[in-house]
Simulated assay, not measured.
Amino acid sequence: MSALGSTPARAVEVGDTVMLPALTLLDGKTLPASVFRDRTVIVEYWASWCPFCAQQNPHVQKLYDATRGKPIQIVTLSIDKKPQDAIDYVKSHHYTFPAGMENDAWRAALGKRRGLPELYVIGRDGRVLRKEVGEMFGEDVAALADYAGK
């Protein structure tokens, strides 16, 4: 659910406030919604067939590795039609960042996507601090660590 209503007609933008739902990961584990409280959350949408995502995801993995133990939670959402495609992609690239499938609850929280990859930085108070539509360069992804604690 979002502060904008149960299903925003538009994508959330910088300055909007959101409440992130629980997420079932590709490995079957669940990230409860409580994991997102009091942490900066970086949400990335991707797909196994997206060439720009293929360029950005190694940088997301480096960011995930670099921010372990810090008040940042990274979560990625695949929009693949078949979960097995996403599972195979994550395994073949040896990604360890938390990955799940986009679902109705996440669409209700963040609204309609405008592109791929799409990345949100959500502050500890649930406010959207940054939104990026399209591929980010490695140094820009690395700089997202600066949002820890915001």
Rank of each mutant, 00 (worst) to 15 (best):
Q55F: 04
S2F: 09
V35N: 05
G15M: 13
G126L: 02
K70L: 15
G115P: 01
E102T: 09
F137R: 15
Y45T: 05
P51G: 09
R114Q: 15
V43W: 00
I87A: 03
P51T: 06
D16N: 13
R39I: 00
V35S: 10
D104T: 13
D38H: 10
A148W: 01
V90G: 11
T24V: 13
L116S: 03
E135F: 07
V75K: 00
A86R: 08
V43N: 00
W106H: 13
A54R: 09
P98W: 01
G115Q: 02
D65F: 08
V14S: 11
V12S: 13
W49Q: 05
P21R: 14
L144W: 08
V35M: 07
I79R: 11
R68E: 11
Y89P: 07
I74V: 10
C53A: 01
A9Q: 14
Q55M: 06
E44Y: 02
W49A: 04
G69K: 11
M101E: 09
G5T: 14
G5D: 14
V18L: 09
A47P: 01
T7S: 11
D65G: 06
V41F: 00
D104L: 12
A9D: 13
S6I: 15
F52N: 03
A66F: 05
V75W: 01
P51L: 09
M19H: 14
E44A: 06
H94K: 14
K62A: 10
A9F: 15
E139L: 07
R10C: 14
L31H: 00
K81G: 12
G5A: 15
A105F: 15
L20F: 09
A9W: 15
V121A: 04
P117Y: 02
L63I: 06
D80Y: 11
G111T: 07
G138L: 05
P58W: 04
D104F: 09
L25P: 07
Q56A: 02
S34F: 04
A109W: 05
T76V: 02
K91C: 09
G100S: 00
W49M: 05
W49P: 07
R127I: 06
M1P: 14
Q55S: 04
Q61Y: 11
G115C: 03
G69Q: 12
Q55N: 05
V41N: 00
I79P: 11
T24W: 11
A109T: 02
L20Q: 09
